[in-house]
Nucleic acid binder design. Structure first.
Lengths: 323, 323
DNA sequence: TGAGAAAATGTACGCGTGTACATAGTGTGA
DNA sequence: TCACACTATGTACACGCGTACATTTTCTCA
């Protein structure tokens, strides 16, 4: 009735609208969904660990806002789906009940399990899009950021300032962007002739949490004489690291340089303010939802889409030591 | 068919289940919603200012996680609804399309406009619950925290440490919790005999953003000789204030004491760490969704519910000056 | 063993919309 | 003016499930 298919006499149109108004008629979205066999919902999948709240609030809320903005413009609604890690159920469950027409997936990991499940989704023809995650060898829809480039910039900056003994505190390796950052770091370091074996000594690993950064401080402390800078894979770890080191008597920005990653709100409020790499999370969410909905609604983007946005170094005081 | 109404022979039950499995049958959630005239969705309304991302990430993501946890347990889904401030459309629009059976409303303001719209919702019989907001004189469902008490504790703590010239940096007055905090502050100050007129001189107002805290620093600077402590209505403003003051040469925790509010992640990472008031946001979200769903699903809680949780002072270094 | 009650199962209809198709209307050119 | 094409409007059915109610079976107690 209001589907706008076929032209209509303007007069009739007005009369109907008036009547609808008079009767206080409002189309029932569920009945519409039912009839056109489409939910009008876009799912957003978030990793969910019971009791542990979102591990990176900044990242998720930015992406979510971006998705929300795109979704609103397309007249879709946004269904939030928390996915438990231990879930025996796979991504397909999300689509089974047909409550969503497509999914933006956040926090997918490049593990055999997730890979398999995503492949199943693809084979079942369910539209989805990965954000901030790249699956090499697959043709999944994805919106990623150039983390290799961002890391390269960050490390290059440290090198330019004269630091050479640059440790790398990476996050969980199951995320593709961890590998990306490692690549950027390695490239920058290799270019100035630092050999791979040395790089191994400079490598630390956390899990992107502040606590893991703090823990790394202790480990780093043992070889602190051989380190004059640290590049951390996200701001939270960088901040934890700063705190941990401070407790051991080492001040970031004075005794050694620290660079973070994400340019989260927190990076501005630390002491000293954190040099970091800005990632356009909002825009990434927006683009992911936009393109995915194009695909769903208009059958556009037949080949799918793989977008990679630029990152940008933001220089603050945490890398301004004597060096 | 699978509604579980009426008993069934166990044998039949098994056979049907087996068949369903064999045919890879999955009930269609939309058809179910349609038939039982219930969406199975709980809406969560977030204030949305285009281009400006969520103004208090910590608060929203905590509440959202809590809601998510309750919703999951009840077999409901979570529909995110961004509400533009200038929206001519009212809260009723959310229910018109019947995509949600109820709503948790975040960031409602105690303004005539919002009040009127909420009253309309109530009259229309649409279940909803306010979080972190109290409407005096109404019987709306709500889950609030004891902000008057929290503020009272905070200020009392400062007084006990010997500070008496305590300024109050409040947030936007249209939120009821701003008034609550003011009340707690005023009570604590009055109890030690500080007269109302003096309190007016000590009153500042921001809008809960970090920038507004930073701006307040300039204003405060003019009468800094008469201030030895500041109680800020949230952490973000407290942090902005600390930064602003630092630029003017005044260090929190050394030259004057600062207490924030929320116990957000950021409070732990500032220098010095921020004394603040912890609010159980996660629990609040959880309770709101839980009780609201009880009301919706089981017709429970006939009189509605009004819950108020305790807050707790968390003492860190930002209020440890000479005082 | 039979009648009546209770439990189990089967059946048909309705929910509110989209859509394909049938029908009525309008316009154009010979 | 008639035939034809094209456009506007009207109609009926399907979507996949819940549910009320009709029907059949089982059970109970006399």
């Amino acid at each position: 009735m209001f589907n706008g298919i076929g032209p209509m006499k303007e007069d009739t149109r007005q009369r109907v609208l008036a009547a609808a108004n008079a009767l206080n008629y409002h189309p029932n979205a569920i009945a519409q969904s039912f009839a056109r066999r489409r939910s009008g919902n876009l799912g957003v999948v978030l990793p969910y660990v019971p009791k542990v709240h979102l591990f990176s609030t900044y990242y998720f809320s930015e992406v979510l806002s971006g998705i929300g903005s795109a979704v609103r413009e397309k007249g879709y609604d946004l269904l939030l789906i928390f996915r438990e890690q231990n879930d025996s159920g796979d991504y397909n469950d999300i689509f089974r009940s047909q409550k969503v027409d497509g999914c933006v997936i956040l926090g997918a990991t490049d593990t055999p399990r997730d890979r398999r499940q995503l492949k199943q989704l693809e084979e079942a023809g369910h539209p989805f899009c990965l954000v901030n995650q790249h699956f090499a060898g697959e043709r999944f829809n994805e919106v990623d950021a150039d983390h290799a480039g961002g890391s390269y910039q960050a490390v290059k900056h440290l090198l330019k300032k004269g630091y050479t003994r640059i440790a790398f505190l990476n996050g969980s390796p199951e995320f593709s962007n961890s590998a990306d950052r490692k690549r950027g770091y390695t490239q920058a370091m290799s270019e100035v002739g630092i050999d791979p074996q040395r790089l191994q000594q400079l490598y630390y690993e956390g899990n992107y949490s502040r606590t893991s950064g703090q823990r790394a401080a202790a480990a780093m402390h043992r070889q602190l004489s051989e380190i004059d800078a640290v590049f951390a894979a996200n701001d939270r770890m960088a901040i934890g690291l700063m705190q941990g080191l401070r407790e051991l008597g080492f001040i970031a920005g004075r005794d050694l340089a620290i660079v973070g990653y994400d340019d989260s709100d927190a990076a501005r409020v630390t002491d000293p303010p954190l040099t970091t790499v800005a990632v356009p999370f909002y825009e990434m969410g927006r683009l992911a939802a936009e393109h995915l909905l194009n695909q769903i609604i208009d059958d556009a983007e037949p080949g799918g889409f793989r977008i990679k946005l630029d990152t940008q170094l933001v220089i603050r005081d945490s890398c301004r030591t004597a060096g």
